[in-house]
Write a protein that binds this DNA or RNA. Structure first.
Lengths: 124, 124
DNA sequence: ATAACATATCATAATATCATGATATGAAAA
DNA sequence: TTTTCATATCATGATATTATGATATGTTAT
């Protein structure tokens, strides 16, 4: 999806200012791959939903089963379960089966760090 | 939007296990407000788009004008400008007018931290 | 004043995401 | 084995987000 579309009329915007060409080259050298951007945006997208964020924030405090999450969040089971599936699919939570119950926890300290830096940001 | 819907059939899920009620109370005490969750998820949503993420990652390296961003990202000006508007509206980038140009930079170190922790996460 | 340029805004069609009802699975209790 | 309970999956309509074409704004040069 990159480096095609050569008739794009933005090709030489700003070319007159040749100092800019250097800056463009510098930043381009440091760019992650298209796949990495894509994975990273998928990862952040998971945080971009209040229900999932609530689940994450509760699991920062302690591990919980699905029904506890439903009760604490006042949400129906389908909703919580669906969001947990998305969180699982993105490796952000894991669970242990205990009888009929599933006890969920965060997989990773990064999840907690990002949540907390974000919270700090919106509170300042 | 919370604490209504009392005929919700999930009210007493798991009530039999009284140990769970304690856990539910503990985590509920620590929950941010509905508004804070909403603001926080809006904030993270901004990271959940590859174009915006690319812009953020380039501005982590150095400040750039709109046309440099267009060139480095091989995207048309409308797309970049629209995403910059969203980033501005969410206080994630700022800009200084320099003649006809607008030089953009990140507003905040939190933005860079979150980007970098996320990148670390998907690379591990 | 007019042309050229850098950037911003508006309108829109294609696409993605959300919460939820209906239903399935799978484990323990009766 | 039948019932009950905790959880998972599927299908869907409502809503949100995306990139982009058309157009507007505002600045510098002629």
């Amino acid at each position: 999806m990159e480096n095609n579309n050569l008739e794009n009329n933005n090709e030489d915007l700003c070319e007159v200012f040749n100092s800019h060409a250097d800056a463009v080259n510098r930043v381009k050298e440091r760019m992650p791959s298209e796949d990495q951007y894509s994975n990273l945006s998928e990862f952040f997208k998971i945080f971009g939903n209040p229900t999932r964020l609530k689940i994450i924030s509760l699991l920062c405090v302690e591990d919980l089963c699905v029904c506890d999450l439903c009760e604490a969040l006042d949400l129906n089971q389908t909703t919580v379960s669906n969001q947990l599936r998305i969180l699982r699919a993105n490796n952000m939570v894991k669970y242990k089966k205990e009888g009929k119950m599933a006890r969920y926890s965060l997989t990773d300290l990064h999840i907690e760090m990002i949540y907390k830096v974000g919270l700090e940001h919106i509170l300042e």
